[in-house]
Design a protein around this nucleic acid. Structure first.
Lengths: 353, 353
DNA sequence: TTGTACGCGTTATCAA
DNA sequence: TTGATAACGCGTACAA
């Protein structure tokens, strides 16, 4: 191994200058050929530049381009949790849409800490991204909401775009799905199947969209003439739902016909808990969730849930992130119930109160 | 809305210069206070700079820093698929470790296309990341392997670090888990439970690690005195495994005691297919996978699999990505079988041939 | 059409 | 310790 090629950090990256020199043209000409848009370069030069770039293995220095242009080709995505199948699917869709139009995605995770969100936005702003997309948090009573708004405003004022997904609490471009309507329809369909005595599992963490789902479900029940659904708010996780169900009294459980949880994750936790108590699903009690995560395909019985068109959400988000509107708009993507084996029609005997 | 504050892109971002001017110091001094390391600045100046930065809402322009310093605080992660629970978990762990030491993560997805991998590396190189981590591809006979190596070498020569996860095919720093040993041990344990007539589902796509898992399992069986396991390579997806199982003849299936698939995803697909054929799991046939994805907790029966310590893999990868070694090393993280309800001990009657 | 000269925001070098 | 000044790589008026 020669002294020149060995080790790390020995060589300087190939720059546009190197390419220009090798091609025997000026640096701006090389720039025009390789990265510019107004391609008024003589074919002979063009060829030489392209060949030189190929030979040298030139790649544009993105930070340098970003600085010179004042804007980058990066989109910053702030997300609660990437290991959660729902958010993973959301991130995947957003990346797909972004890459389709030549944008990179830089991901940051809040791990559901509201204060971390503010820090992240501040940091991300420094990346000079084309847009910042905040997906899937949104607390009912956020501690530092005004600071977050200020920070995002400041970012917007310097030409950046802000898009919120699944949280309609802030005055920015918002893409949301219809939480209320989705669970309302679900409640109506389940009521039509005969379900009346329901336990609703909301989120212990005060999240707006989850609250909407609870309200929608209750509304749907009431419209169907079903009242008195019990609402509880266990810790917002699979384990939280499971533990909650395990802690119920036998009398409580015996009286139930259905458990609706505001996410599939919770629903699966509840399902696990109910089974641990010796209950059969769906014979003894029905279970329904919300999100329609892919994972559900491997669960028996197939879980009734509310489907959300994540690809539509992502597409809309990327569109909003790359189009400069004057006024923030609110887009709502539909969500509709999907009835599966976990909530079969109740026998007539059970429907009668 | 005033002409100054309105719309998008009106205001210029706050720069270090603005802060310095407001604090009445020179720009380098402001730099030393806010971003520098050798903090030899008079306390009085220090205070004034910090306050000015706070008032103005200054955030360092990362591209500018990257250019000036010649290196960024970004790690580029190239991953096959982010919606896959296994890769999502891997990405989550890597991000966690990276953020713990103040590094951003930029994610790019290959969608399992080998040629896209090369393009991505070329692009990512332009981001001037601190390191490039390639996770989870690695073909048996890659079409453009040499080009990829050249590209990564070039990146390394300019001071970047390259770390490969779960693919020991390229001459770079590698973190892998013990595919062969993991499935070998699994095979031995299953053989000890009485399983003999096995169907092994490999990957239709020629991936190295998957091949290792097949080889390891076969080796484990042979060591246990079990020969003649059938190996097949359906399309590398849940659907592929399901369809393959559905296409088997009844005679084939009746003869089987176990299906081992090289990933949990495939195993779950196979399980679904077997059930569609009216087989009971595990009474009629056992099923085992590899990866121990979180999703399995909601599957009944609980799936026997091989557990991989992803957090250890991620930690090691980040460590390698931030430590400059002279020679590329190979780290192997253990993988060990976890026996669950999907492969109960076979009754004595079945063990007898 | 091509090349010269400058600016982008930051860090690093060197005098003072 | 602090402050001028020169990079870093690229895009872009402007002049040729």
């Amino acid at each position: 191994m020669s002294a020149l090629s060995g080790g790390s950090g020995s060589r300087r990256p190939v720059t546009l200058d190197d390419v220009a020199r090798q091609a025997g043209v000026s640096q701006p000409t090389a720039s025009r050929v390789l990265n510019g848009s107004s391609r008024k370069v003589a074919e002979a030069y063009r060829e030489r530049v392209l060949q030189a770039a190929r030979e040298l293995g030139y790649t544009p220095n993105l930070p340098a381009q970003a600085m010179a242009r004042g804007t980058s080709r990066t989109i910053a995505l702030v997300i609660s949790l990437i290991s959660d199948p729902y958010f993973a699917a959301m991130a995947a869709e957003i990346m797909k849409q972004a890459e389709a139009i030549g944008l990179h995605v830089s991901i940051a995770v809040t791990e559901r800490q509201a204060d971390r969100e503010l820090d992240l936005v501040r940091e991300l702003r420094g990346q000079q991204p084309r847009a910042i997309i905040l997906a899937g948090t949104g607390y009912v009573d956020p501690p530092s909401e005004q600071q977050l708004i200020d920070e995002l405003r400041r970012y917007e004022e310097t030409g950046g775009r802000v898009v919120l997904i699944s949280r309609s609490d802030l005055p920015f471009e918002t893409v949301d799905f219809d939480n209320h309507e989705g669970s309302r329809q679900l409640a109506r369909e389940l009521a039509a199947l005969g379900y009346e005595r329901c336990l609703i599992l909301g989120s212990g963490t005060p999240l707006l969209s989850m609250q909407r789902r609870v309200e929608g479900f209750v509304a749907g029940l009431v419209e169907s003439g079903v009242n008195g659904a019990r609402v509880h708010h266990p810790e917002f996780s699979w384990t939280g739902a499971r533990d909650f169900v395990l802690a119920l009294t036998d009398a409580d459980v015996r009286d139930l016909q259905l458990v609706f949880a505001v996410t599939d994750d919770l629903a699966l936790g509840a399902l696990a808990g109910l089974r641990e108590r010796g209950l059969r699903i769906p014979e003894d009690i029905g279970v329904a969730g919300f999100d329609d995560i892919t994972t559900l395909r491997d669960v028996v019985p197939q879980l009734t849930t509310v489907h959300v068109a994540l690809n539509a959400v992502a597409q809309e988000a990327i569109y909003r992130a790359t189009t400069s509107d004057s006024e923030p708009t609110r887009t709502t993507v539909p969500a509709y119930p999907v009835l599966r084996a976990s909530t079969p029609p109740l026998q007539a005997s059970c429907v009668i109160e």
